[in-house]
Write a protein that binds this DNA or RNA. Structure first.
Length: 415
RNA sequence: GUGGCUGUAGCUCAGUUGGUUAGAGCAUCGGCUUGUGGUGCCGAGGGUCGUGGGUUCAAAUCCCAUCAGCCACCCCA
């Protein structure tokens, strides 16, 4: 039984399902390219510290969701990437690309997280990803958000997606606020949920994510981060918001939006939909000005996002069938060899050709129909003798003859 | 890790208060049509009823356990 069962949380992307998947990726890549993002491909696994140092020692991803193992040397600790950002930043620093900024890249591929599967969540899943490294100012934030919005529009899902945005401020603002927040929360002591009490000291901002009713009550009156941003942080956030408005990108400021990963600063955002059940975040990201330094590189600002390909693919629905082939239908043994030669010629001339390995005429026509062929090219003894083929229109069944010689030219309209 | 729901043919599902040989649609294959598909008609193959135990004269049906899938919590794309 288990011999044929795929690993929990993995899925076979069969041709039919892969079509949507590919459509999402191709569309995203093409739009990103228009904004000057070049595609790159970081490794699927990295040394564990690349992720553990950057994402936060206490984050759920690092503490319980990573696929980590020693490699065959028995010494190095390897982790299958749970996200793109850290790996891309590592690649940036490893290759000393500091003089290549702004470094604008697009990436896509599989990610791995050990979680209980549910709708829109798998253990192997796929993301599209866009990053701008090396730009300190809010223009990068605005551009990164613009590409995201543009991709959603191009995929025709933008109308059911809303952009929520917040500022986490710079390090100074965050530290100042953190003290205020802890001071506010501490008196509640046992009233807080167990999770929240744990978070109180290592990551109090995350208490805003709590679903516990009592926590929500308590947090309602808590001091807000936005009221504690220093001038620079306020100005920065204001500039981002103005830039979005100026480009006609709708957004909602969500003071409770706190991303789960430690490396975020300033801008944090999520494109969210109601149409996918509980896992509605379709693209999310933010600014990570300290990340590259944390990795051991030179201080370099960055901002980017990742989008869930499976989630987006569910939203785009069934679309576009592949182009229609012409089908070759040999009748009788002699015609088979001839059909293969014709097929080869047509394929070299750019045609998509369907040619079965076996079966009589009836069977082959049925398969041609199933393959959604535009025409069937019938080749029997009669045709061979006369040096022609019979073209059957698969829509209306009408038939006419064409010379075998120079067939590709006669069929140009079906290419 | 926790909770809820669901496991019957390749797929989607019926299956009555436990009762003979477990059914249908779709899909597949064959025939009506030995040179003509997509619509029609006829037929065929295909099932350890998730798995293991228990109750009973008798279990797809009731009980227990277990596995898997889905959905949700947590968290995230």
């Amino acid at each position: 039984m288990s011999g044929l069962r795929p690993v929990r949380g993995t899925h076979d992307l069969l041709p039919e399902g892969f079509r949507q998947h590919k459509y999402v990726i191709d569309t995203a890549c093409e739009i990103a390219e228009r904004y000057g993002f070049d595609e790159m491909m970081p490794p699927v696994f990295e040394f564990t510290h690349v992720f553990s140092r950057t994402m936060g020692q206490t984050s759920d991803v690092v503490t319980k969701e990573m696929y980590t193992f020693p490699d065959r040397s028995g010494e190095e600790n390897i982790t299958l990437r749970p996200e793109f950002t850290a790996g891309i930043c590592r690649a940036f620093a490893s290759n000393s690309l500091y003089d290549q900024v702004p470094f604008k890249v697009f990436a896509c591929g599989p990610l791995f997280r050990y979680e209980r599967p549910q709708k829109g969540r798998q253990r192997q899943f796929h993301q599209i990803d866009a990053e701008i490294i090396g730009v300190k100012g809010p223009q990068a934030d605005i551009e990164v958000l613009s590409v995201g919005q543009h991709i959603l529009e191009e995929l025709e899902v933008a109308k059911s997606v809303t952009l929520r945005i917040n500022s986490l401020g710079d390090a100074e603002s965050r530290e100042f606020y953190r003290e205020k927040l802890v001071a506010y929360l501490e008196p509640f002591g046992e009233d807080l949920s167990e999770d929240s009490r744990q978070r109180l000291h290592h990551n109090p901002l995350r208490i805003f994510d709590s679903k516990s009713e009592r926590d929500i009550e308590i947090i309602t009156d808590a001091p807000l981060l936005r009221d504690h941003l220093n001038y620079d942080s306020q100005k920065f956030f204001g500039d981002v918001c103005d830039g979005l408005s100026g480009r006609g990108i709708a957004y909602t400021i969500d003071p409770g939006l706190v991303r789960g990963l430690d490396y975020y600063t300033h801008t944090a955002f999520e494109f969210v939909t109601e149409s996918l059940g509980a896992q509605g975040t379709v693209i999310a990201g933010g600014r990570y000005d300290g990340l590259i330094e944390q990795l051991g590189g030179r201080p370099t600002p960055g901002i980017g996002w990742a989008g869930g390909v499976e989630r987006l693919a569910m939203m785009v629905g069934n679309i576009r069938q592949r182009r229609r082939p012409v089908a070759l239908v040999p009748i009788g043994g002699d015609a088979c060899e001839e059909a293969n030669i014709i097929a080869q010629k047509l394929r070299k001339a750019g045609f998509m050709v369907a040619l079965d390995y076996s079966g009589g005429m009836k069977r082959r026509l049925a398969r041609a129909n199933k393959a959604n062929a535009v025409i069937a090219i019938l080749i029997g003894d009669d045709e061979l003798k006369r040096g022609i083929v019979t073209i059957r229109d698969m829509e209306n069944g009408e038939q006419h003859e064409k010379p075998l010689n120079n067939l590709a030219n006669h069929l140009a309209q079906y290419r």
